[in-house]
Design a protein around this nucleic acid. Structure first.
Lengths: 308, 308
DNA sequence: CATTTACTTTACAAAAACCGTACAGAGTGG
DNA sequence: CCACTCTGTACGGTTTTTGTAAAGTAAATG
């Protein structure tokens, strides 16, 4: 095989993007602690391998949780992952460190299997492992989002029972909220409020939005599902929110959604950006625009919108 | 294995976070009582092991319950744990307000305050503090249960907004699920299924039931709220549940509840005990008895019923 | 060839920890 | 009521650790 996980192919800028490190810090880590030893081009620029990137991402997460880079640098990947699980409160016994890529897809399949058998514990375990291994953002994007979508579809087609869908919601919610609690947030950071309007009982979309915002450094407040528009407005105002995220899965009743939007908009004194996402939002573009809201169709979309 | 429970790896800041001690106090304990003897880095910074952290957390809990650190410091972990269990268990005696009970009440008030200001972070913090201080079961009984009840009442009286109730649900749920995940459960233990029937959107009662069962050593599956009776039946059957817990907060519609009960009962092949709790259950005694279900009115009630 | 991106080295600065010492409130025994 | 112990907290001055910046050079890119 030409490209295994040790083939050096990534230039720094990619690594910076994927790990969230700054160039200076990355070089400092290499110089001072020998955290990774990237190959070089003949001109002397660094070339990192997939496993380098994985290790760096892992290390970064561990340091954000309070571990000191000096100690961590002496540990192999597996131990760092183990430590991280422990300190984040995500526990498991064995730590097979299967370096990233296909991991997400495999996790999703394992989850679907667990859901089929209603094996909550297995589902939980699979999710937690993936969460630690991948980190919050990739986990949300490449595991939770596809999983939720798939479950939604199967449920819609009658291939999944209501309990199974419920079990999924409960378990995913649990893992995600643990993850969210672990993300650091400055007290001075802008506030993001995530919720779901009345009639919308599917929470996970809003939770994903919350995760995306939190990962982007916002202070996020997740208010749960099925909330009247004016209530959301009250919360957003009181909390001085700088943005609001709504998730709409089924656009069952456009008129009802419009009512909610109206009460939300009229309750918002200052003009606060409202991001609307979810499957259902796609069919409501007109409505969304009419209210001056913004439609987003992916988690990265949320992230980029929040960069203002 | 590179990292067992005696490998020194945790820097102070993590220990402080996990134990709730202050830096000064921790050092004082080490200096004066030799409570733990952390390893050092080259530069002289402390490095604690997993078992150090465990011992410190234990000691802190014990001191908060009134034991003196001087005495405790001479005891091995197991004895401290024993002592702690003894003193916490004493609570059920008619003794007036032990420090722990005062703490519970104070926590509830602090939570209500936080809820009023929609300060999710403060709410979360107060709950977590109380959870580690009191341990899972007393926490559920003397903090969460009263809190949920109070919030329910205020909400009913219109003294709380819907958002505030939602925020409470979300936050409590998060803390509780973290707690539940921490409780050990044997794979061979009997299974308890907790849920809420259709139309019942208030989750926390069922979660409390799940916590009580988990603390009693059962393997619990929490299925979430608003589930049709037959779906609960399917899950219970498939999972070989040995008991089912339902929570009914508002008995809005007795006829509807009866329908749910019917579909649940008819879906259960074997005769599985069904425990019904919550405010609403009190007004449905007749209905509950007619189906051969059991009414419970407190968490300790659940525990005692599950001892069979 | 000009502009952008990276590299190295050196230096600085802030945070986090360290230590010793001291102080204050609660409880205890005389 | 007065010492005295036990315990938690606080201050002030150092050292370690870690992140960031500056300056000058080299490589890549279009």
């Amino acid at each position: 095989m030409a490209t295994d996980t040790n083939t050096p192919i990534f230039p720094v800028r990619i690594v910076l993007k994927r790990t969230g490190l700054s160039a200076e810090l990355l070089r400092a880590w290499e110089r001072r602690y020998g955290v990774v030893a990237p190959a070089r081009t003949k001109g002397g620029q660094r070339l990192y391998s997939e496993s380098d990137v994985g290790r760096l991402a892992l290390l970064r997460r561990a340091t954000l949780h309070g571990h000191s880079i000096g100690r961590l640098s002496e540990l192999p990947d597996a131990d760092v992952a183990g430590l991280l699980e422990e300190t984040v409160g995500l526990r498991s016994d064995a730590t097979e460190t299967t370096p990233a890529e296909g991991a997400a897809e495999r996790t999703v399949n394992r989850c679907l299997e667990a859901i089929h058998w209603m094996d909550g514990a297995a589902l939980d375990l699979a999710l937690r492992r993936a969460a630690v291994l991948l980190g919050p953002v990739p986990f949300a994007e490449s595991v939770v989002a596809p999983l939720v979508k798939e479950v939604g579809e199967r449920w819609h087609q009658g291939r999944l029972r209501i309990v199974q869908e419920h079990l999924t919601t409960v378990t995913v919610r649990q893992v995600m909220s643990g993850l969210l609690a672990g993300l650091p947030s400055e007290p001075t950071a802008p506030v993001f409020v995530a919720a779901t309007t009345s009639g919308q009982h599917h929470e996970l979309g809003a939770m994903l939005a919350a995760a995306a915002a939190a990962a982007a450094g916002w202070r996020t407040i997740y208010l749960g599902s099925d909330l009247p528009g004016d209530e959301i407005a009250v919360a957003a105002t009181q909390l001085h929110a700088r943005a609001i995220g709504l998730s709409i899965v089924f656009p069952i009743d456009e008129a009802a959604t419009e009512r909610e939007f109206t009460s939300l908009a009229s309750g918002l004194g200052a003009r606060i950006p409202v991001l609307v996402g979810g499957e259902g939002a796609r069919q409501l573009t007109g409505l969304i625009n009419r209210f001056g809201f913004t439609q987003v169709d992916s988690l990265s979309g949320i992230r980029s919108h929040l960069s203002d």
